[in-house]
Structures are given as C-alpha cells and as structure tokens.
C-alpha cells in the first residue's frame, strides 16, 4: 500500500527534501515526519516506510527517530491536541491547576483522546512562554496568561465548531 499526500503536503515534503546536500537526505527525516504527521494525524508504518524510502535510510532508522521525539506520535491524537505546560514558570502561575481542570473536564489523561477523537491532552514541558505563563498550546497555536475560564472557553470553542 503506497501512501499519497495532499498536493500541499507533497509540495512541502519536496521542498524539505531539496534543502539538504546530495547524500545527506537523511536530514529530511524529522521535518518530513512532522509535516506528514500534520496531514495524517499520526505516524503510521506506511509513513515510516515512505520517509525511509525518500531519505534513503532503513525503516528502522526512521523508527528510532519516531521513538525519540515527543512530538511524533504513533498513536493518533485528537483533532485538537491541547498541550498544557506545567513546567516551573507555568507551575508558579497555576499551570498545574489548568492541567487538572482539563483532565477532569474532558475525562482523559496524558496523551489520551476523547471518545469522539476531537481533543487529546498532553502535559508538556516548557513551551517557551514563561514570561506569559501559564500557557496552553492548541496544535501549534499559543494561548498565554491562561486561566481556568479561558481554558474552558477554548475547549468550548473547539467543541462548538465540530
């Protein structure tokens, strides 16, 4: 079974591939996985095989990478992957309370997905928003100075759209 990407993703993958010198295409492994995962929602075995083929490495060498990086998931996350930072700066500003609230409200835990597949939660390490803590990241979108009310609004808005 071969994998086809949307034209947009395919264009990105080709562009990524072109950035690295001849014989160094292995460099494209991680970016390709990241952008392809954005489209597929998960890293599948087919994706691993496809990236291995394009970057001229063995599937095992791609699997090694997938296992290492925390943003590459072999388990499908929700349409909205909601990440709550509880690292020091956020912890000091109430990040932990946000995390507990989110898990309670959605009834799911770390790297778990709601039954409808809409939202997944992850307790993440410092997201680089310390001076505007606490922060929550929805996919790639940052939310700063988050309060429980703001978190509820965010979840509401996700649920309303779908």
């Amino acid at each position: 079974m071969s994998l086809t990407f949307t034209p947009e993703t395919e264009k990105i993958l080709q562009d990524i591939w072109s950035r690295y010198p001849e014989g160094r295409k292995r460099s494209a492994v991680i970016p390709m996985l990241m952008y392809a995962q954005d489209q597929l929602g998960v890293v599948t075995s087919e994706l691993v095989a496809e990236v291995a083929k394009r970057c001229e490495v063995s599937p095992l060498q791609v699997e090694e990478v997938v296992g290492y990086y925390s943003m590459l998931n072999k388990k499908r996350m929700g349409k909205h992957h909601v990440q709550v930072c509880t690292n020091i700066a956020c912890l000091l500003m109430g990040g932990e309370a946000l995390w507990h609230h989110a898990t309670k409200r959605l009834g799911i835990g770390h790297k778990e997905v709601t039954a409808d597949g809409l939202i997944s939660l992850e307790e993440v390490e410092c997201a680089g928003a310390c001076s505007w803590a606490p922060c929550v990241v929805d996919g790639y979108e940052y939310h700063h100075h988050v309060t429980i009310e703001k978190l509820d609004q965010l979840i509401d808005s996700i649920q309303k759209v779908h």
Partner: peptide
Amino acid sequence: LYTHTGAGAYECGEESALLESLEGKRG
C-alpha cells in the same frame, strides 16, 4: 539559509545533539 524543524526534545538544544538531529538521527 533554510529552516529545519525539531520534533520535541530539549536535548536537541545541546549543540552536538542538535547536529545529530539535524542529520536526521536521534538527539
């Protein structure tokens, strides 16, 4: 000059791990 995305790993900020990562390997 190109951008290159990481994929979630603090250790890849350490310079030699970053280079490994940039070469498509574990950090």
